[in-house]
Design a protein around this nucleic acid. Structure first.
Length: 224
DNA sequence: GCCCAGGTGGGTA
DNA sequence: TACCCACATGGG
């Protein structure tokens, strides 16, 4: 499995190159972006982040002081804006209550404890927690998303029914614990996922994983 | 007009 | 546990 996961990584890297994730500046902006990107395209998130910066709210203190309604209006382009405004507030309340509003204190926790605390915040689920750990705290926690599941299923690496935690463990138990590797791997899976090759490129022209896809399809056919 | 996008939490059986 | 639903805007 280790060789297989590394082969996929090397193919994607050769095809797409470094993705320079996370897009954005600084740990707080990464956290805000991780919450705002839930179930919405990144382009919409950029609009919201620009709006927060213009309003002078892209720091924990200012955002914590801003009225919920103001935040909601600024982040409208990301959809679910009322929910997401509450999620941002919930994180800030947590940071203030548990870590004296200091991101460095939060990030000084061991990964498991950090993950557990993030998951206790209303509105932060597994993917958002892992995104914050990996891309804001820069600690090793593999991020699994819809593209990850779709691509691995297509390649026959998983059957698609696995839980988030099972897929995360598949990566973390088979790959070296390496932050830059986790960073690039997840970013490349998203990059590849956006190709939508199944819909728009049925013949897999130029796809770096085309032969692996075909082998998986044939193996499935043989099993019946 | 329709479908999808770097999810999450709450409710019901 | 396994579904089902609400949350909502912008781009193809």
């Amino acid at each position: 499995m280790r060789e297989r996961l590394l082969e996929i990584y090397h193919r994607l890297y050769a095809a797409y190159g470094p993705q320079h994730w996370w897009p954005g500046e600084g740990p707080f902006e990464v956290i805000v972006g991780a919450i705002l990107t839930q179930q919405v395209g990144w382009r919409n998130v950029e609009l919201a982040i620009a709006g927060l910066k213009t309003a002078g709210l892209m720091d924990p203190e200012s955002l914590a002081r801003a009225p919920l309604e103001q935040i909601a209006q600024i982040i409208r382009p990301t959809g679910y804006y009322n929910q997401k405004a509450k999620k941002l507030k919930a994180f800030l309340d947590f940071l203030n209550a548990r870590h004296n509003a200091d991101l460095n204190k939060l990030f000084s926790l061991p990964v498991d404890k950090l993950r557990e605390e993030l998951l206790s915040v209303r509105g932060i689920g597994e993917e958002t927690a892992d995104s914050i750990i990996l891309y804001a705290a820069e600690k090793p926690s593999f991020v699994v998303d819809a593209y990850t599941r779709r691509i691995l299923t297509r390649l026959g690496v998983i059957n698609g029914e696995e839980s988030y935690g099972e897929i995360r463990e598949l990566f973390m138990k088979n790959l070296p614990e390496d932050v830059p590797l986790y960073n690039e791997y997840h970013a490349l899976l998203v990059r590849h996922g956006k190709e939508r090759c199944l819909k728009r490129n049925p013949r897999c022209a130029g796809c770096p994983l085309a032969d692996m896809c075909r082998a998986s399809t044939e193996a499935r056919a043989e099993r019946g």
